[in-house]
Amino acid sequence: MHRTIGVTAAVVMAAGLIGTVPATASAAPAGAARTTGAAATGASAQAGDVSTMSVHRKHRKCTKPKGKRFNISWADGFSSTTFYFNNHCKGKNYIRVWYQSNGRKCKNITVKPGVKGRKKLHRIYYQNLMNVDFGKCPLWP
């Protein structure tokens, strides 16, 4: 009998708490939930949510065959940048990536004819990526 009274008291106490929590929770947490949702959205944008980052695209017309293009795209990453390419031309094409690392530096990506693929460049990211264009890098270091 002693045990039954303890369990009954616990059930009554829990029922009392459950009965009062929704009444108070419906007034305050609605605004708090909106604030938390906005804060979560801002935090995910700052944390590098891929959907909020902009994708850059460029293309270059081919000399052979006429009417075809060499397409590239990339998104600035936090520790690296991946370049996607699709070469419809009959010759090699080059992607020239300028970045800042103890001075101005350049990196080439060579794309063979008729190739579709990607190339990840480590330690080239949104803070030090300066420019992306077509052609070979100069021979100076």
Rank of each mutant, 00 (worst) to 15 (best):
C106V: 02
C106T: 00
K92Y: 04
A9L: 15
A23C: 05
N86D: 15
G31A: 14
G42V: 05
Q127M: 07
G48S: 06
V21E: 11
V55H: 08
K105L: 09
C62T: 05
K107W: 05
A75R: 12
F85C: 00
N131S: 08
A9K: 09
D49I: 09
V12A: 15
K92H: 03
G91Y: 03
R3H: 14
M53G: 07
R69L: 04
G135V: 02
S80P: 03
S101F: 07
R60D: 06
V50C: 05
H59A: 07
Y126N: 14
I95H: 02
G67I: 01
K116W: 02
V115P: 03
I124A: 00
Y94A: 00
H56P: 01
G16K: 05
W98G: 08
V55W: 09
W140Q: 12
R60N: 07
R104G: 09
K61Q: 06
T24F: 15
D76L: 09
T63E: 10
K116H: 12
G103Q: 06
A45H: 09
K136R: 03
G42C: 03
D76E: 15
N131R: 13
A32E: 11
L139V: 02
F134R: 00
P141G: 13
K112S: 05
R34L: 13
V97M: 04
A10V: 10
G117N: 01
Y99P: 06
H56I: 03
Y99I: 05
A27W: 13
S79V: 13
W74I: 00
K120C: 06
A15D: 07
H122L: 07
S73N: 04
T4D: 12
T63I: 13
R104F: 09
I5A: 13
P113D: 08
G135K: 08
T36N: 08
A38I: 13
V11D: 06
K68N: 01
R123I: 08
A39R: 13
F78L: 12
S51A: 14
G16W: 11
P141N: 14
C137M: 03
G77Y: 09
L139T: 09
P141E: 07
S101Y: 12
R69I: 09
N86F: 01
S80I: 02
C137I: 14
R96M: 10
C62I: 08
P65M: 05
R3G: 10
I72T: 01
